[in-house]
Amino acid sequence: MIRADTPTTTRRSLLAAGGGALAALVTACRGQSGPVTRLRIATGAVGGPYNAFGQALAQAAGTGGQRLEVVPLATAASVDNLRKLDAGSAELALTMADAAEDAVLGREMFPRPVAVTALARVYVNYTHVVVPARGPVRTLAQLAGRPVAAGASGSGAQVVAERLLRAAGLTGARAVRARQLEAAESAAALRDGEVDALIWSGGVPTPLLADLARELPLRFLALDGHVAGLRAVYGPVYCAVTIPAGAYGLREPVGTIGVSNYLTARADVPDHAVRELLAVVFDRRRVLLAEVTAGARLEPRFAISTGSVPLHPGAAAYYRSVFG
């Protein structure tokens, strides 16, 4: 039995939302199927995994006969996406679970709670701290005072990087020299010797890093020793996971920190649109997660586990109707 904790949307809440998903209803029709619901999905940087997921979802929705038009928006990712949901400039968003919980609870980068709802827990991000294999850095502590690419401003990678560095005691006099760079910029900076490490959170393998590993021998730092400290502060949103041997040419597995990814929505997205969207997601899950091996867990029991982020009523109805 799946329980939706989201309160029923009221007329007052719809008016207060400033249009939101109501403005997404367009008059175009696909044959005799009725009006099409246009949903903008905040993804991530072009070339990144969120953007690729959004593009694939848009294509799947457009060819599946649903009354949906999904429009991907390139963004800085998680935090930026949640702000767009709050502002009504997107109806859907991909986000890391830690940023989503911050938004719901109104903490850290969110001065007040954001009315975000979950449609599905999609897959697990693996935290990568990557250094040149031939360099001197073998532990996180050895990054003290060094230049580090620590995620783009407004990204989930930045959230994880800041928390991880604090947990490792890399603050004050021991702080790294953090540079806020997108994934492609981070990889280029590491390759060119402009930074001594990059911090990234994504699926395994992340194609960008797999490409970099073919140019530059890489070392992936073990991070699993910091999971307990992060969980003590932020709860079970963080977990221990392992980058498997073979990924990125690794000879041995590397323990690291896992953070789930959620597909989220504004509460005022119509229930029927959510049900149709989730039908596409589950029908095309292999295509949507084609580039994710480790951490790919898009199945019902996993999908409904969204922590402090309540399921959208339409999502709860979908899971009940399809999976009981």
Rank of each mutant, 00 (worst) to 15 (best):
I2D: 09
A4F: 10
T6K: 08
P7A: 02
T8W: 04
T9M: 14
S13K: 12
A17L: 05
G18T: 09
V26D: 15
V26H: 15
C29I: 11
G34F: 06
T37V: 13
R38L: 10
R40H: 13
A42W: 12
P49W: 06
N51D: 15
F53T: 08
A56L: 13
G65A: 09
Q66Y: 14
Q66M: 15
R67H: 12
V70L: 01
V71H: 11
T75S: 13
A76F: 08
S78P: 03
D80T: 01
L82P: 04
R83I: 13
R83C: 14
L85Y: 03
S89T: 15
S89G: 08
L92G: 08
D102V: 00
A103F: 08
R107S: 03
R112H: 12
P113S: 04
V114F: 14
A115I: 06
L119Q: 15
Y123N: 04
T127P: 06
V131D: 12
P132N: 00
A133L: 00
G135K: 09
V137C: 05
R138D: 06
P147C: 03
V148F: 10
A149M: 00
A150H: 06
A150N: 01
S153C: 07
S153V: 12
G156P: 02
Q158C: 02
E162S: 10
L164V: 08
R166N: 14
A173L: 14
A173C: 14
Q180G: 09
E185F: 12
L190V: 03
G193M: 02
E194Y: 07
D196L: 11
A197P: 10
L198N: 04
V204A: 03
A213E: 08
L216R: 10
A222K: 15
G229M: 08
A245S: 13
G249L: 01
R251Y: 06
T256H: 13
Y262L: 11
P270V: 01
D271F: 02
L277F: 02
R285P: 00
R286M: 10
R286G: 11
V287I: 02
V287T: 06
L289V: 00
A294F: 00
A296C: 09
E299D: 01
I304K: 11
G307C: 04
G307S: 06
S308K: 15
P313M: 06
P313K: 09
A315D: 06
Y319T: 05
S321E: 15
